[in-house]
Design a binder for these strands. Structure first.
Length: 485
RNA sequence: CGGGGUGUAGCCUAGUGGCUAAGGCGCCUGCUUUGGGAGCAGGAGACCGCCGGUUCGAGUCCGGCCACCCCGACCA
């Protein structure tokens, strides 16, 4: 009997690690906290990059590349920025066998190096807006790491834009947040909440940080992407002024926004099951795996039919034909399920007799037989159904696990309960009125481990006239609390 | 960084001071197989985490160190 993965109900975190390793998405590297992204994981990332990159281009952004090494002094130019990142910096002190005059930090993010360049490139309103994105790796020295979710080095994209007016920059911030939301929901089939972060969860150096937040199957939230309105903070720090239409000098307005390989972790934890990975068709590197099944007498006929079918289907789908004769069909079924391929097509003697092919969908396990001649059409619709079903399923799960506790006690039970029944569900989202006081937020964290994930858009209106669930003071916001990764 | 746990072949595990460290999975060769993790035969693969100590003798006992995992602190 081959290796099984840990069941979700036994240990969610073991299950997660098992999937990443067994589905060959990634492996531990010799350096603590850093990981190797293996071909199956990287193919997934490439699909994500493609989808996102198209959306960035459609909204007018261009790609560029800024260097990995940043003079240490750059980080120090923005007070909050350096304070936020100092604890997790990797610093290069030697080069070419000699100690450097000034240490270089390995970028934890690129605002500083980029704004040092923007200073050179921006003189006039005619140079604006400047809309640049880069695909890059960054390093943050985290104490506690997890494959894809928080690793020392990770891959991401970071957009950095410069604008004439505050309004334009604010619009850009929200536009990119919406791009992320659409990508999460339409490609990843992961529904996300959007909103603004509180002071304590804000990006170091931002005026406002917005985020998309997804709910994982263990009812913990995962911040899947952020978009920041940076105001004029970096423009001031790097002295980036432009001449306005009226010939006066103004600091430019800025945004930055990013998503990372953490999205792969989100994808895994949103959809996968005890048999392995479950991938949404739009992002699956392989949409269909075709497995021929034969005995020695039927070998030639089945293989030939499989080749023919594969050739035809490849015109439309990303298909793999698994003709390995050393492993049994049963083995292959389990293996391709582990890898998360949305549709398995089986072609055996019985199918051939009836001129049909058997299709099995990964998300539900449902099996059906269709005429070979109509296979492409059915696969096309099935892929759409799977994509939709994954989203619907995840959305239903989020709805079931979004609560509006009536009292502070009820909220504590929600997060501290043993999970034995509905009332003590141990987690999920809790939408409650909040007085806006960081001390109240801190108290909730202390007593429940839950933090404010976002203040949803329009929350002030909804909070009007209500009292804070925790302090009993007048509420200023509706806040979404959750335990998070 | 604090508390707990684990280190024996690629993976999982046995080995309770005594001979050449054992088994399963996986891997390689050959044959037979193939509709939910196939069978037989043969084979390769281990500085038992590292360093030191006790002992006639250490995978096993003692000390130190390291790595990884879990819980916490920390983490836009």
């Amino acid at each position: 009997m081959a290796e099984q993965i840990t069941k979700r109900s036994t240990s969610y975190s073991d299950w997660y690690v098992d999937i990443v390793l067994r589905a060959q998405l990634a492996d531990y590297s010799p350096v603590k906290g850093s990981m190797v992204i293996r071909p199956r994981g990287y193919a997934l990332w490439e699909r994500m990059q493609q989808g996102l990159d198209n959306m960035f281009k459609e909204t007018g952004h261009s790609n560029a590349y800024f260097p990995l090494l940043i003079p240490e002094s750059f980080l120090k130019k923005e007070a909050e920025h350096v304070e936020g990142f100092a604890p997790e910096l990797a610093v290069v002190t030697h080069g070419g066998g000699q100690e450097l005059e000034e240490p270089l930090v390995i970028r934890p993010t690129s605002e500083t190096i980029i704004w040092s360049m923007y200073k050179k490139w921006i003189q006039s309103y005619r140079d604006l807006p400047l809309l640049i994105n880069q695909w890059a790796n960054v390093v943050r020295w985290e104490k506690r790491t997890r494959l894809f979710l928080r690793s020392t080095e990770f891959l991401w994209q970071e957009g950095h834009t410069a604008h004439e007016t505050e309004q334009e920059a604010r619009d850009e911030t929200l536009q990119m947040l919406d791009v992320y939301k659409r990508f999460a929901e339409e490609y990843m089939a992961v529904p996300v909440l959007t909103g603004v972060k509180t002071e304590s969860e804000k990006f170091a150096g931002a005026v406002d940080t917005y985020a998309i937040e997804a709910l994982m199957q263990d009812r913990k939230a995962l911040q899947a992407g952020t978009s920041h309105f940076l105001g004029q903070n970096f423009a001031r720090a790097f002295d980036v002024q432009y001449q306005t239409r009226e010939s006066s000098l103004e600091y430019v307005w800025a945004t930055s926004w990013g998503v990372s390989t953490r999205l792969i972790g989100a994808l895994i934890m949103a959809h996968s099951d005890d048999s392995g990975l479950v991938l949404p068709p739009r992002l699956a590197p392989t949409e269909v795996v075709l497995i021929p099944i034969f005995r020695s007498k039927t070998r030639e006929a089945v293989l030939e039919a499989a080749q023919t079918l594969a050739r035809e289907l490849r015109q439309e789908f990303r298909l793999e034909l698994d003709t390995d004769e050393n492993s049994s069909p049963g083995w292959k079924f389990a293996e391709w399920e582990m890898r998360g391929v949305p549709i398995r097509a089986e072609l055996g003697p019985r199918d051939l007799e009836n001129s049909q092919v058997t299709l099995v969908r990964r998300d539900t396990g449902e099996k059906e037989s269709v005429p070979i001649t109509g296979a492409a059409e059915r696969i096309r619709s099935l892929l759409e159904e799977i994509q939709q079903n994954l989203f619907d399923r995840a959305l239903a799960f989020r709805q079931e696990n979004t609560h509006r506790p009536e009292t502070w006690e009820e909220m504590k039970t929600l997060f501290n309960g043993d999970g034995s029944d509905e009332q003590t569900a141990r987690g999920g989202f809790a939408l409650v009125p909040w007085d806006g006081d960081p001390a109240t937020e801190a108290l909730v964290k202390e007593e429940t481990k839950a933090t404010i994930r976002v203040l949803p858009f329009g929350n002030e209106e909804e909070a009007r006239g209500k009292t804070c669930l925790i302090s009993g003071k007048p509420a200023r916001h509706m806040a979404v609390f959750a335990k998070s990764y």
